[in-house]
Amino acid sequence: MRKLWYTMKYKQLKKIIPVFSILLALALQIFIPNSPLHPQSKPYFTYVLIGFLTVYLILYLISFVRTSIDKMLVYRGAFIGGVVLFFNILNLLTAKAALLPVLYFPSLDRVFGVIAEQTDVLAKCVLYSARLLFFGIVFGALAGFTTGICLGFSKTVSYWLSPVIRIIGPIPSTAWIPLVLIAFPTAVSASAFLVGVAVWFPTTIMTSSGISNVQNAYFEVSRTLGASHRYQIFRVGIPAAMPHMFLGLFNGICSSFITLVTAEMIGAKYGIGWYINWQKEMLSYANVYAGLIIIAVLFSVLITLLFRFRDKILVWQKGVIKW
């Protein structure tokens, strides 16, 4: 009974860590004056902290009714507290004490200020980038799966194509720019192609290696069960290679993020990569960091969605393959 009481108290303590961390950050932010070296700005960091505190307190209240939220807060409590502490220290080092070079390390007030004040430009950039990523990833992945499947199943295709792919695949995307500019009618299609190539290469490699790694016994048993060649490809080879294909897609999407900045170098009007590049040249690092925060959020949402999707279609591989 006593022990149970202690573990319960311990649990509540873990859940309350972020609240203390946020309150500490708020107190320091409000009571320590900003260094005069930093340009004046509205206290956006205070707003962010207050907003975050509100959201957390709402979750905290819900956690007494919902066990899933409760578990998440108990588990994540220390981490969230730590992240807030990190921003707190960063705030002290920049805005409060100006210990870091002011030009390269703008105050958090200004970084969040960019997101708050330039919302429409940033939103437009996000939409443009999302469109580019969407077309690039869809076409790149489709092309990658197709090439990978052909490579995996056909000896002839493998003989002719795999050396070519080995040469073309690792070419950095910047090297394509001159060629792509001539070959594609619009800047958007050219950029989408660059993103597509970035997705295509890892998808192809992982798909074909996934198919060549399928146990021969699966094909043999399917033949004794009366499966045609076509049926073997689509109902045995591809499902068996699915985890590898997914890994390829995952790698591809990661490299597409990296390529995005390059792709937006060609005649882009908007785009988050273009925005960061442009602001970097203007030496406005507050805007660069704001762009980076947006990219990080955007990509982690995309990756989370991808994992959800994988868990849904690859239920069977739990307990078979782990990655």
Binding site: Q215, A217, Y218, E220, V221, R223, T224, L225, G226, V236, P239, A240, M242, L314, W316, Q317, V320
Partner: peptide
């Protein structure tokens, strides 16, 4: 002349397709 569903085959390992229930 080749495998056929007339001749069923059972391997030492169950070789069930792991992606199918």
């Amino acid at each position: 002349t080749g495998p056929d569903c007339e001749r069923g085959f059972m391997f030492q390992n169950h070789t069930l397709f792991p992606w199918l229930n």
